[in-house]
Design a protein around this nucleic acid. Sequence first.
DNA 1: CAGATATGCAAGCTAATACTTGCATGTTAG
DNA 2: CTAACATGCAAGTATTAGCTTGCATATCTG
Lengths: 105, 105
Amino acid sequence: MKDMNPVFKVLADRTRRHLLDRLHTRNGQTLGELCEGMEMTRQAVTQHLALLEQANLIAVQRQGREKLHYFNPVPIHAIYERWIRKFEQPRLNALHDLKNRLERK
Amino acid sequence: MKDMNPVFKVLADRTRRHLLDRLHTRNGQTLGELCEGMEMTRQAVTQHLALLEQANLIAVQRQGREKLHYFNPVPIHAIYERWIRKFEQPRLNALHDLKNRLERK
DNA sequence: CAGATATGCAAGCTAATACTTGCATGTTAG
DNA sequence: CTAACATGCAAGTATTAGCTTGCATATCTG
């Protein structure tokens, strides 16, 4: 997937969105906790978390032998500002555009 | 990319976001117009547009031998409602969570 | 220290993705 | 009618994503 912006790519996976949901419900969970109930190996979850960390969507902190994960809302807000908000004013003048297009000919 | 929600997957590609941007700038463009300046073949663009159409992000209308493309903002708004908005209230109490966690032990 | 626990690292497999090439079909213009 | 134009269809290729398996390392507990 050709993409300079890692946030979209990361959000495109259901497992990763689920992990974000879990951290949103309770922040600071360990790797083991985040693996509970996941239908894949711990290593798979680790790899998803690594991508989330690369995209700056989570921050990680070692606490003894445990690894704590914290959700960071900033990139999602940036996505909203850059990509969502400008599309929220729907251009309902599609027919007007069509009319213009036909007249240009 | 394992995902039931096609909108995220579709938005994850830079080329497709660029196509949406172009339609947002001027709605109702033909396939040929949307191909201009793209550094790939027409068929590649067609495939991207097909994915955008599947995700209901664009609507297509045949006009003679031309194919007109219209942007549809509804799925992006749905994404915002379902996934973005709830993350916009940042939980800045990470330290509080950490404190709770340590006390649970 | 020794065993259990929590996590890390890396190679390998499979399926999906992005893109191309080649040809076919439908439409408009002279 | 026919030639140029706009688009459609399908098979093939290279890359990447998601996941697994196997083993290594670090930390806690008794």
